[in-house]
Design a protein around this nucleic acid. Structure first.
Lengths: 237, 237
DNA sequence: CTCGCAAAAATCGTATGCAATCTTTCCTGA
DNA sequence: TCAGGAAAGATTGCATACGATTTTTGCGAG
């Protein structure tokens, strides 16, 4: 897969920072797996695709590299990240540490508006699971991540929210790479249980459910190294 | 305080990324309080000081803005961050969530070499506390942060380590801004207690001590808004 | 046909230039 | 004297240019 095969919506909200817009689009493409891990993102190509100069494209790539979604090598360029099993484990270890606390914080701040937003989110999630098709799975992974991001935004801590944005994005990459199959529908019901606990203000239960949920997601991964990591990296897969 | 009043060591390890070196130096200057919150960091000045073009200076400032140490405003430039009391609370809320878990992870991975490194670190910390002088306090804050960074590196999770780097740096800013006085010596003894628990592999105790330690640090802050935050921001203080 | 090496092409790192925006200065009129 | 506003200056956003490094291509020897 080459980045030139992608098409990107025009950058219309021009007033804002263009590099940020490009970063968001590339992040979506990576998380959606439209850009495969290892894909080279050359500054020139990105610039041409988004109709900006290399300067702006470079800034966007730098941002993604901070988030761990792309890896940059000096004088060689930027590549869509290809997380190792060890990195995958660290992503989930971090989530286990942070997300139960976020669930507790969110439980104490739920409003009816939040509940409605969660319901809408879970509805959409359910719809993607019902669908069966090539990009339904992508949408499903994305929607599942959005549930966790919504939770983080309710928790009301901007720093933790940013951490979660990074962790969720990296998780999506990891799931795409190492995911076995269908914990997803199971995950959907777990999301609903978590929401129920949140609605009842039962923070302890929400926290415990979240912890189990993360364990389940990770348990669905196959993190055995296959073929040796050196070869994989050498082949840029 | 103006950035031009600062002096920076020459960038000698030239082979590496120059923007990164500049970022590190600026970060040290901010954390050490040699650059006051609100100080303008113009691309041109930074470039001149480090003898690079604005392109490179800009990249360094962008990195710092990702870490939350500088705030950038479009068409206006970059300023040393001036965390609000609310931001300060969020920093410590994040640390309360993450650091006890880091302590647990670290307790299971301590080696004699790690213990020695911690002892050296605590010795240095004690030396700075003994000293009394204008920049002894700076060094003290920095050394105190280094203890937490050392702990994070022992925990062996690169992602959490990066999160902690950001949180410790922002904490240093917060302490410099809102710190009352001398919990620091008290903090030193708490560090020693934590190390003791780590040495004994008593992860539960290390975790609990860490949580209290963070509480103590935050309790020493005076987070009441003085003069109204709008005014402060308007005056760039 | 394959291997090795040199030339060509592509890509990156960085400096610099120009237009747009913001800030400061200074002048004018009340 | 002071408010208002225009012009000058400073600074940022972005594009482009050029040397340095890497990758690819092409060619000749074995």
């Amino acid at each position: 897969m080459n980045i030139a095969d992608q098409t990107f919506p025009a950058v219309d909200s021009a007033n804002e920072d263009r590099a940020q817009t490009i970063r968001d689009q590339l992040r979506d493409a990576i998380v959606d797996r439209r850009l495969a891990p290892g894909t080279k993102l050359s500054e020139g190509e990105v610039g041409t695709l988004f109709d900006v100069s290399r300067t702006v494209a470079r800034a966007a790539l730098q941002m993604l590299s901070f988030e761990g979604l792309v890896r940059t090598e000096r004088n060689r360029g930027a590549f869509v990240a290809n997380p190792s099993p060890e990195e995958a484990r660290q992503v989930f270890a971090s989530r286990r540490l942070i997300e139960p606390g976020i669930a507790i914080a969110a439980a104490g701040r739920m409003t009816p508006a939040h509940v409605a937003a969660f319901k809408a989110q879970l509805d959409e999630e359910g719809r993607f699971i019902a669908e069966r098709g090539p990009n339904a799975r992508r949408s499903e992974i994305k929607a599942s991540g959005d549930f966790h991001l919504l939770l983080a935004s309710v928790a009301g801590n901007a720093i933790l929210q940013r951490f979660m944005e990074e962790l969720v994005a990296r998780s999506s990459l990891v799931i795409a790479l190492y995911g076995r199959s269908g914990v997803s529908s199971c995950g959907h019901s777990e999301h609903m249980n978590i929401l129920e606990a949140l609605e009842n203000g039962n923070s302890e239960r929400a926290s415990a459910l979240m912890l189990h949920h993360i364990d389940h997601i990770e348990a669905d991964l196959d993190l055995r190294v296959r073929g040796g990591p050196a070869l994989r990296q050498a082949l840029e897969f």
